[in-house]
Amino acid sequence: MSWNSLTYFGDSMLLLPSGIIIALFMAWKVTGRLTPWAWLFTFGLTGFIVSVSKLLFLGWGIGSATYDFTGFSGHTTMSATFWPVLMWLLSGGYRRGIHRTMIVIGYLLPVMIGISRVVLQAHSPSEVITGLILGLSASSLFLYAHRHQTVKHFTLPQLAIMLILPIILLSTGHKATTQNMIEQLAAYITGHPPWTRAQLLSELH
């Protein structure tokens, strides 16, 4: 798998609709009535924090030249929030060994996605590391809070229904335009072009 293919597993075009699908299936498969709402809150809050960090930099240049930080890596943060929870949901009806292995995979995948962002020069190491900390903290808190909930087993038809949209999105490879939207919002609010990484790093010279 190429780095470009791997990085798409953290793209908002895939994760945002998939996050809503997860909530719908939680309402069906998880015993806790508030679990879907807790998930939507966790996922939404994490996305909001990422967006604010990007807006602060693009609009007002709030970042760190020393650490080459312009905001949390969205791909890394949202995948670290999403994948551990998805694996928890899908494997909840299996025996403990399989369940734990799937969750571990859910934790490892965002790390690989984060590495892909650095390799593709889309983000600095600091943006990826802080994104991992934020995203994995969010998913871990969610999983800890719902560790006593019972998750019903998925049949193959149910699994196919749940995964059909994510698979279609993966096959198309269309990327989200969230970064452009935040840039446009920053320009609209401040009345000047968005800040760039080059401008930030120029402070070191």
Rank of each mutant, 00 (worst) to 15 (best):
K54M: 14
K54I: 07
L55N: 11
L56E: 12
F57L: 10
F57V: 12
G59D: 12
W60G: 12
W60Q: 13
G63Y: 00
G63M: 07
S64V: 05
S64R: 02
A65H: 02
T66G: 03
T66F: 00
T66I: 04
Y67P: 05
Y67A: 15
D68A: 15
D68N: 15
F69T: 04
F69I: 08
G71F: 06
G74M: 00
G74P: 06
T76R: 03
T76Y: 02
T77V: 08
T77C: 03
M78Y: 07
M78D: 08
S79E: 06
S79K: 01
A80M: 01
T81V: 15
F82Y: 15
W83Q: 00
V85P: 03
L86C: 03
L86M: 06
M87I: 04
W88A: 10
L89Q: 13
L89H: 10
L90T: 04
L90R: 04
R96E: 15
G97T: 13
H99R: 15
T101Y: 11
M102D: 03
M102P: 04
M102K: 01
M102L: 13
I103K: 10
V104Q: 00
V104M: 02
V104R: 01
I105G: 11
G106T: 09
Y107W: 12
L109A: 01
L109Q: 02
P110E: 03
V111T: 04
M112A: 14
I115L: 15
I115K: 08
I115Y: 08
S116L: 06
S116Y: 03
R117M: 06
R117E: 03
V118A: 07
V118S: 01
V118N: 02
V119F: 02
L120S: 00
L120K: 00
L120Q: 00
Q121M: 11
H123T: 11
P125T: 03
P125Y: 01
S126E: 04
E127T: 02
V128Y: 00
V128L: 01
V128C: 01
V128P: 02
T130N: 08
T130H: 03
T130C: 07
G131Y: 08
G131R: 06
L132K: 06
L132H: 05
I133P: 09
I133Y: 06
I133S: 10
L134T: 12
G135W: 09
L136I: 02
S137C: 07
S137V: 02
S139G: 09
S140Y: 07
S140C: 01
L141R: 06
L141Q: 04
H146N: 14
H146A: 11
H148V: 11
T150S: 14
T150N: 14
V151E: 03
V151S: 05
V151W: 07
K152Q: 11
H153L: 11
H153C: 05
F154Y: 00
F154L: 05
P157Y: 00
P157I: 08
Q158M: 13
L159M: 13
I161M: 14
I161S: 13
M162C: 09
I164H: 10
I164W: 13
L165T: 11
P166H: 05
I167D: 04
L169F: 07
L170I: 12
S171N: 14
T172C: 07
T172S: 09
G173I: 01
G173A: 00
H174I: 10
A176Y: 02
Q179E: 15
Q179R: 13
